[in-house]
Design a protein around this nucleic acid. Structure first.
Lengths: 148, 148
DNA sequence: TTCCATAATGAGAGTGATTATCATTCCTTC
DNA sequence: GAAGGAATGATAATCACTCTCATTATGGAA
């Protein structure tokens, strides 16, 4: 398993730009996030990568966020969720289950993206924002919770 | 200041449906949220409504959320942001400043909503979700941070 | 109006994710 | 291979948030 070597190289370059190293633990973190089809909580990361001490995990995830390799999104409850930045994982949105809080990735449709691209710029302009990115969250019931 | 009396009545009814009362402190909370053009953090609420003890504020905000009167959204950093549910404040999205983390409301355009409504259902279906709601976040630089 | 069941209050302690500290260890470059 | 700075990892501290519980207030029933 694993990302393509070229992606690892790109990540290494990114880190080097802010004088940071692509260490083994950071590679473990990146692989862990890349292997998941949904953003992970820190406890989930710690469980999946048991060799990662908690303090190193938080410090490294912060370093990766500052380098633009990892993105932190806000979970339905209090704590944060972490995923690879879109540059490394592709543009996507999130499906959130209103009942159990589960979050998973969803690929956007061309149609949606076209409409968003234009509308979004217009809306931002109206309030003096330079909009560079959009995020869409779809709320609903996941298959499990629908069945129940 | 103040919501229209009919809105207060509607909120009272909502609370009554789950055997909860519309007390003075809860009205203070609702007024505080209604007076803001953006979602507020709990510390901001506590500062704006100094008569609200912390424990009551959290308990009441939870009660209002369960009754569907208040919505909790996730802030750019760790902690949560609170705002009136769309039923009482109108459908809107959020502008988030990528630099300072400020969050403010933005009215959606018809064009955007039309495209979202259709695309969103299709995307959810594909993964077995019954999508009932969508949220859009626009990231960019706010006027202040652009100037700097 | 008075009584009573039950919801609401408020202070304080407790929880859990996240951050700061700091001495030690590992890379990297010269 | 030595020096300098980044990374590590255990620990303590922080902060939003929740729980507990004794007290008070509310709103319907008698």
């Amino acid at each position: 398993m694993g990302l393509s070597p070229s992606l690892h190289d790109a990540i290494r370059v990114r880190l080097a730009e802010s004088d940071q190293r692509y260490t083994r633990l950071r590679r473990v973190l990146v692989e862990t996030l890349a292997a998941s089809a949904r953003p992970l909580t820190m406890p989930e990361i710690l469980e999946a990568a048991s060799e990662l001490p908690q303090s190193s995990a938080y410090r490294n995830v912060t370093a990766l966020i500052e380098a633009g390799v990892v993105r932190r999104i806000a979970g339905p409850e209090d704590h944060g969720l972490f995923e690879l930045a879109e540059e490394f994982s592709g543009h996507h949105h999130h499906l959130v289950c209103a009942a159990c809080g589960k979050v998973e990735d969803v690929a956007p449709s061309d149609r949606l993206e076209r409409a968003l691209g234009e509308a979004v710029r217009a809306l931002g302009d109206a309030q003096g924002y330079q909009v560079t990115e959009h995020r869409v969250e779809l709320l609903g019931l996941c298959p499990d919770c629908t069945a129940t």
